[in-house]
Simulated assay, not measured.
Amino acid sequence: MKTSPQRIIAHFDLDSFFVSVEILNNPALKGKPVFVGGAERGVVSSCSYEARRFGIHSGMPSKKALQLCPQAIAVKGSYCDYSKFSRWVTNIIASKAPLFEKASVDEFYLDLTGMDTFFNPLQWTINLRQQIIDETQLPISFGMGSNKMIAKMATNEAKPNGYLQVPFGKEKEFLSSLPVNKIPGVGEQTHAVLKAMGIFTINDISLKTKEELEKGLGKWGTELWNKSFGLHNSEVRACREAKSISSENTFHENKTDLVFLMSELVRLTEKIAFDLRQDGKVAGCVAVKIRYPDFETSSQQASIPLTCADDEIIPVVKELFHKLYRKGKPVRLLGVRLSELANEVVQASLFNDIERKNDLYKAIDDVKNRFGKLKLKRASSG
Rank of each mutant, 00 (worst) to 15 (best):
C47T: 01
M149S: 08
L320W: 13
P167I: 11
A348W: 06
Y163V: 10
K182V: 02
V19C: 01
W88R: 11
L333I: 08
V266C: 00
E223V: 12
E319H: 12
N26R: 03
C47D: 05
V259K: 09
L374A: 10
N161M: 03
S86N: 07
V266I: 03
T90Y: 14
F321I: 01
S146R: 08
P293C: 15
R370A: 00
S349V: 03
S176Q: 14
T209P: 13
C47S: 11
P5E: 02
I314T: 13
H57C: 03
L231M: 13
L122C: 00
A65G: 03
L231Y: 09
K30Y: 09
G218W: 13
I245P: 02
A273T: 03
F351D: 02
L128K: 10
T269D: 00
S263R: 14
H191P: 09
S349H: 08
H322E: 15
I272P: 12
E270N: 07
K215W: 15
L333P: 13
I73H: 15
G382K: 10
N120H: 12
I199R: 05
A309F: 06
T201S: 15
S86F: 07
P98H: 08
N358L: 01
S95N: 09
K148T: 02
N226Q: 08
E212A: 11
G114S: 12
K195M: 14
K327Q: 06
S58E: 15
K243G: 07
K172N: 13
I23C: 12
G31D: 08
I132W: 12
V36R: 05
H11K: 02
L276P: 13
T256G: 15
N226F: 06
R129P: 11
E319W: 07
D81R: 08
V166I: 06
G382Y: 09
L14M: 06
K170M: 12
M262P: 14
